[in-house]
Amino acid sequence: MPAELPPSRYDFEVDIPPHSGDFVIGGADLAPATLVDAYRHGFFPMGMSEGGAPPMGWWSPSPRGVLLHGDHHVSRSLRRSRPQFEITVDAAFDEVVAGCADPSRSGAWITDTIAQAYGRLHALGRAHSIEVWSKHGDLVGGLYGVSVGGLFAGESMFHRVTDASKVALWAAVDLVFDDAGENRLFDVQWQTPHLARQGVRSVSRERYRALLETALLQPPPAGFV
């Protein structure tokens, strides 16, 4: 079960002006209680500029990219390729974060400080990874994110072979939207053309907060407990 956390030292009850940008506030720290409270209020940490440059900032994009129950699209080609991979959960969290943090990737923003912060969350049962392995036992893709009630906030994913990140997302969707998951929320931060083809939609900040409020009342996915 996820570990109980002390109250956050910071207040994320922030009134966001209707036409504000995606970046909202700066400061605070990356303690587990801070991170979980931020997610409960619709924020996630990145650098204070596009691309994630320091110092730390807290973001609440509008529009927000989300996957809702029943929206995930799996192509026929992906269905054919999935049997080529083995999938695990929480078997190699640090390695997945390292794959996502690869500095050769475009837009890389995961620093050592951020990786360590999410590693602490993982140790407390609050952050989880999906690993995708080749038949030869090589880690070829994955994703990681934070689970708070019925919210799963996907932070980043990577692939080293074709379709591996799509398979990771598919596996995560299956976990999040299990038989009791209709009111859960899979947050992906921003919709991209790549994610849109897999069913991710954009919603306003106000709509996101309504979905989040409902999701937080739901039990966490059994596969992440």
Rank of each mutant, 00 (worst) to 15 (best):
E213V: 03
G181M: 05
L169I: 15
V173Y: 05
L124G: 10
P219C: 03
V167C: 12
A92N: 07
D179T: 04
I114D: 00
V96A: 13
G141F: 11
L139Y: 02
A31G: 05
I16M: 08
M48L: 12
E182P: 03
G57P: 03
R64I: 07
M1E: 14
P2F: 06
A38C: 05
I25A: 06
R120G: 01
Y39C: 00
G26P: 12
A117N: 08
V66G: 06
F12Y: 10
G27C: 09
L5A: 07
V140S: 03
V96K: 03
A31H: 05
I130N: 08
A196C: 13
A171I: 01
F85V: 11
Q191K: 15
E155G: 10
L5V: 00
W190C: 12
M46T: 00
H72C: 02
P32I: 01
S20L: 08
A164N: 02
I87C: 15
S62I: 01
A38I: 06
G125Y: 08
R79I: 09
L169G: 04
E95P: 05
M1G: 10
D187V: 07
Q198W: 08
P17A: 07
A91N: 12
A28D: 03
M157Y: 07
Y208G: 00
E95D: 11
T111K: 12
R82H: 14
V173Q: 01
P32R: 11
V203D: 08
P17Q: 09
N183T: 05
T111F: 15
